[in-house]
Write a protein that binds this DNA or RNA. Structure first.
Lengths: 131, 131
DNA sequence: TAAAATAGTTTAGCTAGGTAAATATATTTC
DNA sequence: GAAATATATTTACCTAGCTAAACTATTTTA
């Protein structure tokens, strides 16, 4: 396998594992946090808005969202258009949000501390060129 | 989320989806191919050798290997040390291998064609710095 | 050499991605 | 306005990663 792709996949797995470790104390998994973050950023959202924004398929979001409802992080209600479901952060999620975000920011900083700002920019640009 | 990690995860998913598409005509999935490739490269291997080399956990390899046995790509036999299982490519896999490898190489080339050789090298190096 | 520790593999069960197809509601078209 | 089409979500079922714990065979140690 092309060493570039190999390295990319390895790093992707490494980072999700590390994020999961960081989130463990908050009882969250990486993709659950991603969804919470997305909702916090946009306020109320329909499921379709979420999966289009995160660029994943609808069933993935259905599943994660309902798990988050179960865990008490999210409230869900029908929209004006009765096909759609609207989700928003629960009281609990709103309260804990900034603490969790803090953990994640610390983690992210730690992960890129061996890169200069310039290198980080170049890395992003080069990744964007793959398509 | 840090735009670097966002881009990295997006690209990782994008690439596995594209690889799966490429492998569809050979009735294989990305990780199945990764395991086949690994075995072809090293000849006979124990399960532990495979998961250590690919840097994933043992149960992941157990599952993929047995699926590959089921599908007729791999032969499996007990080792001298009776705890271990040794796997090797089946007749079918050996025959089809180079054709599939060809598809993958074409795919990989297509994916990096907008990068110069230098950029590819830099990209790998920068990815390696994340840890 | 019997007991304890280690190594290789598997099982069970979780998250997280995907596709294909079903269902329910809205919208468009004839 | 009824029929056809489109949109939002869900269901079922794959692959693919993970952890924790079990099981078996080997190696080490007291």
């Amino acid at each position: 396998m092309n060493p570039l792709f190999h390295e990319l996949f390895q790093k992707s797995r490494f980072l999700t594992n590390e994020i999961n470790l960081t989130l463990k104390k908050h009882n969250l998994y990486a993709s659950q946090w991603t969804v919470l973050f997305c909702i916090q950023k946009h306020g109320e959202m329909s499921l379709t808005q979420i999966w289009k924004y995160l660029n994943v398929e609808a069933p993935t979001i259905t599943r994660t969202v309902y798990r988050l409802v179960e865990l008490g992080w999210i409230d869900i209600r029908p929209g004006k258009d009765r096909r759609e479901k609207i989700v928003s952060l629960s009281e609990k999620a709103s309260q804990d949000f900034s603490t969790i975000k803090e953990s994640i920011l610390e983690f992210e900083d730690r992960m890129v501390e061996s890169l200069t700002k310039e290198e980080e920019t170049i890395l992003i640009e080069l990744l964007r060129k793959i398509k």
